[in-house]
Design a protein around this nucleic acid. Structure first.
Length: 903
RNA sequence: GGAUCUGUAGCUCAGUUGGUUAGAGCGCUGCAUUCACAUUGCAGAGGUCAGAGGUUCGAGCCCUCUCAGGUCUACCA
């Protein structure tokens, strides 16, 4: 059955229907597949808005992998989902409400009503996102769709929380935390964005008789100072250590009691070598406070800034109620006026801002929930920190196949560095959109549990959990945990055996640890680290075996795409104009793992062109295949070109396979594109027009080609497939081409075909240089040496592709007088131009070529006469160089002979 | 301050353990249109591989330093 395709590929006409066919086929659901389980969890996009190009890239990566694995006979689960994104979503909705004129949405609506509004927004956004994912062609199992904020995930979150609580890893503690005044909530260290800004460093003394000068960027916090820390080895200050100084009415305000303490971390060389310690408003100072407490030499903690960023009554009524920044001016002014300010210095300072609310974060002491990362996990003798490290080094519990492999490798180091500096993780947030902390209070009593406690008078903790707490459970909460994971001691994740179906395994058993995970480098700490923490702790398993870290897409100027910058690109618009396949290869090709890449018009243009090229290649091939067959073996190979293209096909199959296995999607696609466009379209199909009778081999190649391209460009390949073979079998579940290289690839075939190609290219080039019209047929003679038979066998190709009338091939021919010529691999080609030879031009051309070959030959000669090279280099290399020299010399000699004719 | 990435043709980038006269796409120049494809084909120009040292028979690739740009990170008060 031969079918003629339309002239151009119009993606809009086919894509939706194809997606529907895939979906209804059931093959997106692994339950309908057999083979070894292979699982990928989709990083759930935030329901804060719509997908952007970065998501298009992620979907392309995941889907390419999923389709490749499926075609390789794996039971593939690509599980889709969305993320409620706690702070991010609430911040977003509140921002829009503020824009509408509701200044304080939380006060205005109250908890229930505001939650309803956020929920509505989230559901809307979710629907859009899911539609976009389908448009991109992602082959995910919609029957397992998950949401980080649905009941199933809530159960998983509560279960982990309780386990950690019972193990004493989660504690309620009074510590200094990051506080966003604008968002009225805490945030974790990772949620800070450091911004560099100009600032002033003030050098001052607390009072005239205070012996040490202190430097600070925040004079207003000094109203809450309770100590000065110096290095214990600092000779200048040693004598003061342990002394207490009383300062009356510091800056006209409160009385201070300053104890001089010693701390190794104080750098003698920096500033004055002495640090004013404000335990309440600095993470570092708070740690000193804890240290002093532990040493039984306590210092006080005085809060002078409140949750609204204003000075408290402890700062005295002179400052109370002022915003911190205002108080800073006032304090420094007072110090200046009272001659206590010694110096002001302009410096650049890094301040932490809230990633969601944008304001500068205050350090405040508060009672919050924390995860202790240093405490030993019961029954493990390892802390969470150590678990996180072990999973990436030795493998979880020292088991090597429970090791997380990170690609590219360099992110391992970055990950370890982060672990080193990790502090206890503050997990409670004062926003409403999120998983409520499963803790209830009644007077002094505290209850932590999955269900609300029975009895009167219990009040649930008002706070919610950091969104990454729930995201951390993603790889297993999506697979039914804890439902199917009633733990059998020693065998985590073991489920129930269903009677009569002894082979039954639940999702968790089949698909966890997941096989492969991809994510952007910007969430390695947020997410990858937390998944490893949660999974190793709660399941005793790593979350995934391989994780691939990709870079960010930027625009032509290298800027981030963002809504606020106004350069956002909607993937749906790109798909509408160019098609999903074009979008997919434009974000997949031309990138390198872990590095940022640019997206711009020319890229998507050429991607679209290529999709169309493939369509037309198929179109042409089909015109030459009277009867398409679906399962074909390698046909008889008659001509050199046949052998060559098949060798190239097998070769590129291997390259594509190897590169996908190594997550080099870009290289895989590029190799395939080069094969398709150059080898196949530009050479072999042109040869096929001349040689004819290629039905079977074209059938075979087209079949393989569509399969190889399918993971990258699923729509166009599936469409072509169905145009050829009807709708009975789907390309999506066809077998990936086998690499059946029976005999080893014959280098000779390649070399021989290269010679033919070079002769043709040389003839075309000669024609162009001599400005001979393309239609004019030429006569050529070839002095072929030992290649006579080869060239005679392929004479029709040469004649056809180089547009020759007559060709004469002999072992040795002298250059005819009225001809021009060139030399390639020992073969001399002459073209008779009769009177049309431009002797001067020909002389110049020959001379030019001689001057390029001569130094090359001399270089080779030198190299080969170097004994050290000959002795040290591998034999193959030396042999190759010798061969090159022989050829170069031969070529040089022939060129010189040709040139001599003119004299 | 520490870490890390990047620097290859006008532009965007490949270049896998060191071994052809360093490649591709876009752009540019010239030519071609009843041919599967102008969303095309053919031919061509264009590079001291950021710079300087070093290791090696041999370096775009390994080592050291310098310069430029980016990113992450930190308790410079």
């Amino acid at each position: 059955m031969s079918k003629e395709l339309p002239k151009a590929y119009e993606p809009q006409k086919y894509e939706d229907a194809i997606y529907e066919r895939w979906e209804t086929s059931g093959f997106f659901n692994p339950d309908n597949l057999t083979g070894e389980p292979y699982s990928i969890m989709m990083p759930p996009p935030n329901v804060t808005g719509v997908l952007h190009l970065g998501h298009a890239m992620e979907n392309s990566l995941m889907d390419t992998m999923a389709r490749y694995q499926r075609m390789n006979g794996k039971k593939v689960l690509l599980l889709p989902g969305t993320d409620h994104a706690a702070v991010a979503t609430q911040a977003k909705v509140e921002k829009e409400l503020v824009k509408k004129g509701i200044e304080k949405p939380r006060e205005f609506y109250g908890r229930e009503k505001l939650l309803e509004l956020i929920r509505e927004y989230a559901e809307n956004s979710k629907a859009t996102i899911l539609r976009q994912i389908k448009k991109l062609g992602t082959s995910c199992d919609w029957s397992r769709l998950a949401y980080t904020f649905d009941e199933q995930r809530n159960l998983a979150v509560k279960t982990v929380f309780k386990k950690m609580y019972d193990d004493g890893l989660i504690y309620h503690g009074h510590r200094v935390v990051n506080w966003s005044v604008k968002g009225q909530s805490t945030c974790s260290d990772d949620e800070l964005v450091h911004v560099e800004r100009p600032s002033k460093l003030y050098y001052f003394k607390y009072s005239k008789d205070f012996p040490i000068t202190i430097a600070t960027t925040r004079p207003e916090t000094k109203l809450g100072d309770t100590a000065v820390a110096v290095n214990p080895h600092d000779k200048r200050y040693k004598k003061y250590i342990g002394k207490v100084f009383n300062i009356e009415k510091f800056a006209g305000g409160p009385n201070l009691e300053i104890k001089i303490i010693a701390d190794e971390k104080v750098v003698t060389e920096f500033g004055t070598g002495a640090v004013g310690v404000t335990p309440a408003h600095s993470m570092v100072d708070f740690e000193m406070y804890l240290n002093q407490k532990a040493k039984n030499d306590p210092i006080n903690l005085i809060e002078v800034i409140d949750k609204n960023g204003k000075m408290t009554d402890k700062a005295s009524n002179l400052y109370q109620g002022l915003l911190a920044e205002k108080a800073r001016e006032e304090v420094s002014r007072w110090l200046r006026e009272n001659d206590l300010l010694e110096k002001e210095e302009d410096i650049l300072q890094n301040v932490g801002t809230s990633d969601r609310f944008g304001d500068i974060v205050e350090a405040l002491p508060m009672t919050q929930w924390f995860i202790d990362v240093n405490k030993k996990v019961s029954g493990k003798e390892k802390s969470l920190k150590e678990l996180m490290k072990e999973a990436v080094t030795l493998g979880h519990n020292g088991i090597s196949d429970q090791k997380v492999n990170i690609t590219p490798e360099r992110f391992e180091k970055i990950y370890f560095g982060w672990i080193e500096n990790l502090r206890d993780w503050c997990i409670s947030r004062q926003i409403w959109w999120g998983h409520r902390i499963p803790v209830w209070y009644k007077g002094e009593e505290i209850y932590c549990g999955i269900e609300e406690p029975t009895g009167e008078g219990w009040l649930q903790d008002a706070d919610t959990l950091d969104t990454w707490f729930s995201s951390g459970t993603w790889t297993f909460s999506t697979l039914g945990w804890p439902g199917f994971a009633r733990a059998t001691p020693g065998k985590p994740g073991s489920g129930e055996i269903v009677a009569g179906k002894p082979e039954f395994k639940n999702d968790l058993e089949q698909f966890h640890p997941t096989s492969w995970m991809q994510m952007g480098y910007e969430i390695v700490f947020f997410w990858m680290a937390r998944m490893i923490l949660m999974s190793t702790y709660a399941l005793d398993q790593i979350p995934f075996k391989d994780v691939y870290i990709h870079g960010m897409l930027r625009n032509e100027e290298g800027k981030k795409f963002s809504k606020s910058a106004g350069n956002n690109i909607d993937p749906l618009e790109v798909i509408e104009e160019y098609g999903a396949d074009a979008l997919r290869i434009s974000v997949l090709l031309g990138i390198s793992p872990g590095n940022d890449s640019k997206f711009y018009d020319e890229k998507i243009d050429s991607a679209r062109n290529f999709v169309n090229k493939l369509w037309n290649i198929s179109r042409f091939m089909l015109l030459n295949i009277p009867e398409s067959k679906i399962d074909v073996k390698i046909p008889e190979l008659e001509t050199l070109a046949d052998k060559w293209i098949l060798n190239r096909l097998l070769n590129v199959t291997k390259q594509v396979t190897d590169n996908i296995e190594k997550f080099n999607f870009s290289q895989a696609g590029e190799a395939l594109r080069d094969f398709t466009w150059s080898d196949l379209a530009d050479w072999y199909l042109e040869v096929a027009k001349i040689e004819g009778g290629k039905s079977e081999i074209l059938n075979y190649i087209l079949n393989a080609l569509l399969k190889l391209w399918h993971p990258f460009m699923p729509f166009v390949t599936e469409q072509i497939w169905s145009e050829i073979y009807g709708n009975e079998r789907m390309l999506m579940v066809e077998k990936w081409p086998m690499i059946e290289i029976k005999t080893k690839i014959e280098i000779k075939i390649n070399e021989e075909f290269e010679l033919i190609k070079n002769i043709i290219t040389g003839l075309r080039s000669l024609r162009a240089e001599n400005k001979i019209e393309p239609v004019k047929k030429l006569n050529a003679t070839i002095s072929a040496g030992e290649n006579v038979e080869l060239l005679k066998d392929n004479v029709e190709i040469i004649k056809g592709l180089a547009r020759l009338e007559k060709i004469e091939i002999k072992t040795k021919i002298k250059k005819p007088e009225t001809s021009v010529g060139f030399v390639v691999s020992g073969v001399e080609v002459f073209v008779d131009l009769a009177g049309a030879v431009d002797a001067e031009a020909e002389k110049v051309r020959l001379q030019k070529e001689i001057t390029s070959v001569e130094p090359y030959a001399i270089g080779l000669e030198k190299k080969l006469s170097n004994k050290e090279f000959v002795n040290n280099a591998p034999v193959q290399v030396v042999e190759a160089e010798k061969k090159k020299l022989v050829e170069a010399k031969e070529k040089l000699e022939k060129l010189k002979q040709q040139l001599n004719i003119f004299y």
